[in-house]
Amino acid sequence: MDRKEFLSAIGLSAASLAVITCIGCSKKGDSTSTSGTTGPTGVDFTLDLTTSANSALNANGGYLSSNGVLVARTTAGAYIAVQLSCTHENYPLVYQGSAGHFYCNNHGSAFTEAGVVLNSPANRNLTTYHTALTGTSLRVYA
């Protein structure tokens, strides 16, 4: 193999590697993609508040995530539920009970307890869900 053939073969290999790498970078399955930044549909599940997995909801200001939904108990004791992911880039939210809002640690977007955008970069409200407490069972539904 002469020098020209060698350089040509290396160039072809590098180009192939670049194409394969770019295909792997596709945002199709990326959890931070801006597509799919709405909450799940058809939500209808029940949380047993007596189990340790759901104990965070027994305290005002506590929260947990389940089925793509963030369920929280406000400092006033009401149960609220919104989509788990930020409408900006699909990162998981946290509930800051003392501040009374949902917050995205990634880019700093914040939302009211009613799911309304407080500050950017998010520009769409959160999907909200209904809650109904019966005894120690909390139903979350669309």
Rank of each mutant, 00 (worst) to 15 (best):
K4T: 11
K4M: 04
F6S: 08
L7G: 10
L7T: 15
S8I: 01
G11D: 11
S13V: 12
A14H: 07
A14Y: 11
A15W: 06
A18G: 13
T21C: 05
C22L: 14
C22R: 06
G24E: 12
G24A: 05
G24D: 12
S33P: 05
T34S: 13
G36D: 02
G36Y: 08
G36T: 02
T38G: 04
G39S: 08
P40K: 14
G42H: 07
G42A: 05
G42M: 10
V43S: 07
F45M: 06
F45T: 05
L47V: 07
L47C: 06
L47T: 01
L47P: 05
T51V: 03
T51C: 07
T51Q: 15
T51D: 07
N54H: 03
G61K: 13
G62D: 00
S66W: 03
L70Y: 05
A72W: 02
A78H: 08
I80G: 00
A81M: 07
L84P: 10
S85P: 06
T87E: 15
P92K: 05
Y95V: 02
Q96T: 01
S98T: 15
H101C: 12
C104M: 10
S109G: 12
A110M: 07
F111V: 14
F111R: 06
E113H: 06
A114M: 11
V116K: 15
V116H: 10
L118D: 05
S120R: 14
S120Y: 09
S120Q: 09
P121Y: 04
N125G: 12
L126E: 00
T127A: 04
T127Q: 01
Y129N: 02
H130E: 02
A132C: 03
L133A: 00
L133H: 01
T134G: 02
G135I: 00
R139N: 14
V140S: 00
Y141P: 06
